[in-house]
Simulated scan of single mutants.
Amino acid sequence: MNLSISQIKKKAIATLKGKWGIGVALTFIVCLITTIVPTIIEVPLSGGFSEWFNQTETPLIADMVNLLISFLFIPMTVASYWFYLVIARWNDPKISDVFAVYKEWELSLKVIGTSILVGIFTILWSLLLIIPGIIKGISYSQVFFILRDNPQLSALEAITESKIRMKGYKWKYFLMNLSFIGWVFIAIFTLGIGFLWLTPYISAANATFYNELIALQDHEEANPADLES
């Protein structure tokens, strides 16, 4: 069933019923970790709080450490996507599930490697023109959901699979995410507090998009004509 954008968003809201609280809590915790941890590490590397507070440029060593930390945060970020996939499938995830990904070190390394590859490919396409970069970024958008359902795939295989499955769905994906722009402005006007609720909404919608339109391709006979649409 090819759901419309409004149907996807309505279904996302339905799956979030009774789970808004845990979604807001996860958003707050992830935001707190990704903000506080780099700061805690950067302060001593900058020579202390007063030096850090008054600095105009971040020391090179602090930049290098922050880059490393950003890589370490990738599995947590991806596991946050998977958290909403569980919700989209009408199950009850736990916040601890997001951090449990680090117990599976092979999966965590694959996720980091896949993220780096996706970034490199997107940047290379963007060097040609911005629009091709955006289109390719959308083509790669389902990579991590596909890896969740098919952990045996390599990074390149998951990227290729995402490109194949997104044929015929890229425009809908773009318009769906663009439809949240009004809510983004509202969230900004609330000094960012609104993002605590908007992030679960957008994440649930993207997980629903995958679950209803992309994942189902696992169970359907592939029609060559459809793959080229």
Rank of each mutant, 00 (worst) to 15 (best):
I116S: 04
V24Y: 07
Y210A: 03
K11T: 15
K172L: 10
T208S: 07
A205Q: 02
S4L: 07
W183R: 07
F83M: 01
F49E: 01
Q152D: 15
W20P: 11
S141E: 01
A155C: 10
V24G: 07
T15I: 11
D97F: 13
L67R: 08
R148K: 15
I69W: 13
S229I: 15
V37K: 01
S6G: 06
E161G: 09
P224D: 00
V118S: 11
K94M: 13
T199V: 15
Y169E: 06
V118E: 03
F49V: 11
W52N: 13
L153C: 03
L45G: 08
I159F: 11
I87G: 02
R89Y: 01
A225W: 10
N223R: 14
V43G: 02
I131T: 05
L16P: 04
F189M: 15
C31L: 14
P44D: 00
F71R: 00
F83I: 08
V143P: 01
L45M: 09
G194S: 09
A215W: 14
N91C: 02
P132T: 14
F99T: 03
H219I: 00
Q7W: 06
M166A: 09
L16I: 06
T160Q: 14
L72C: 11
L124M: 10
G119T: 01
V86W: 06
I87T: 00
L26T: 06
I87L: 04
Y140K: 07
F195S: 07
F145N: 04
S126W: 11
G23V: 07
F73D: 00
L117R: 13
G23S: 06
I116G: 02
N54L: 13
K17M: 12
I41L: 14
L117T: 04
P75W: 00
S46R: 07
G47L: 01
S46L: 00
W183D: 08
N150Q: 12
A207Q: 01
V37Q: 03
M1L: 10
L26W: 09
V111C: 08
I22G: 07
L191S: 12
I13M: 14
T39N: 14
Q55R: 14
S46T: 01
S126H: 09
W52E: 00
G18D: 01
A100E: 15
F49M: 13
A14K: 13
V101H: 03
P224W: 09
M1E: 12
G47T: 05
T35Y: 11
L107R: 15
G137H: 04
Q152R: 05
A12F: 10
G23N: 03
K103L: 00
I188S: 05
W183T: 09
L213G: 00
E212P: 07
V118D: 04
E51Y: 10
L45I: 03
W82C: 05
N91P: 06
I188M: 12
E221L: 12
V37M: 08
G168M: 04
A158W: 06
P93C: 10
A14S: 15
V65S: 09
Q55P: 04
T34D: 12
E228I: 15
G194A: 09
G168F: 04
L198E: 02
L3T: 04
I87D: 00
F121V: 12
L45N: 06
Y81Q: 10
